[in-house]
């Protein structure tokens, strides 16, 4: 068996495992999906209430695409916390699997899971509001989802380090990080309303560029070629954050092995 085949098989192990877990926790999955749909509807209804179709679109895109990015982030960031909770972390870490393969498998599942979630919410909202999407440029939306996924994968990998090195508080830290991304990324409002120092921070969040790009594509029909100012930061973040995430994960694993923090607690 070649190294590549073995690593792909190992990557698939994480995909299959997560799929089995999704099936076993189907009740929770259904509850999360209902909550996500209800949340997106509630927020979008603010636009309806204001009688402003552009605002309605604006909020809807924020709700849907933030849901996608946060699902991706959560699955990646919580993979270690999850294993620590189940007690399987040591077994995964001692298996002959490269971390890249592990992260690849988890990421692939997270992307597919996030896309299914997003599709369900998008269809529900489109039907609920009878939206006219004839001007929408879905290719642009797809491109920004792809680029946004790549940069969020890097952030998710870095966030996954927190439960690895902070045994008791790591999971809470990832939650705080996710909340801050929500606050600064212009999910439901323009980042111009933020104080100057927060606007600086918002430019470091990939979600800012994803949401702006998707909004221009779906509301105004702007093609990717006209959105270079949103594309290049996402490409740069993906190029930097993914290798950085893998490298930092390796360093954190080494630290956890030196200090004995892989051992289950709780």
């Amino acid at each position: 068996m070649t190294v590549m085949t073995r690593e792909l098989k190992a990557s698939y192990a994480f995909v299959a495992r997560n799929w089995h877990l999704t099936k076993r926790y189907w009740g929770w999955e259904a509850a999360f999906l209902v909550y996500a749909v209800a949340g997106a509807l509630s927020i979008t209804l603010i636009g309806k209430d204001q009688g402003d179709d552009r605002l309605l679109f604006y909020l809807m895109i924020g709700a849907i695409f933030w849901n996608y990015l946060s699902v991706l982030f959560q699955i990646l960031a919580e993979q270690i916390a999850w294993e620590r909770w189940e007690g399987t972390l040591e077994y995964t870490m001692m298996a002959p699997v490269r971390r890249v393969s592990q992260l690849l498998g988890s990421t692939f599942y997270a992307v597919v899971y996030g896309l299914v979630h997003t599709a369900v919410i998008l269809v529900t909202l489109a039907l609920f509001f009878g939206l006219d999407l004839s001007r929408a440029d879905f290719a642009t939306a797809g491109l920004f989802m792809l680029l946004g996924s790549l940069s969020f994968i890097g952030i998710g990998m870095m966030a996954a380090i927190l439960p690895l090195i902070y045994v008791e508080r790591g999971a809470q830290m990832t939650f705080v990080l996710q909340s801050l991304l929500l606050l600064i990324s212009g999910v439901y409002y323009s980042i111009e309303v933020l104080p100057d120092w927060m606007q600086t921070l918002s430019r470091l969040s990939p979600a800012t560029y994803v949401l702006d790009g998707v909004r221009r594509g779906l509301i105004d029909g702007a093609a990717p070629a006209s959105q270079f100012h949103n594309v290049w930061p996402l490409v740069a973040m993906a190029v930097v954050l993914i290798p950085l995430g893998v490298w930092m994960f390796g360093r954190a694993e080494r630290y956890a092995k030196r200090t004995g923090k892989l051992k289950r607690v709780g």
């Binding site: 192990a13 299959a16 495992r17 089995h20 877990l21 926790y25 189940e86 399987t88 077994y91």
Partner: peptide, 17 residues
């Protein structure tokens, strides 16, 4: 230490892979 919601076979096939 296992994923307790999964069956023994699901856990073991995961480990095998």
């Amino acid at each position: 230490a296992f994923f307790k919601k999964l069956s023994p076979l699901e856990n073991l096939v995961y480990a095998a892979r």
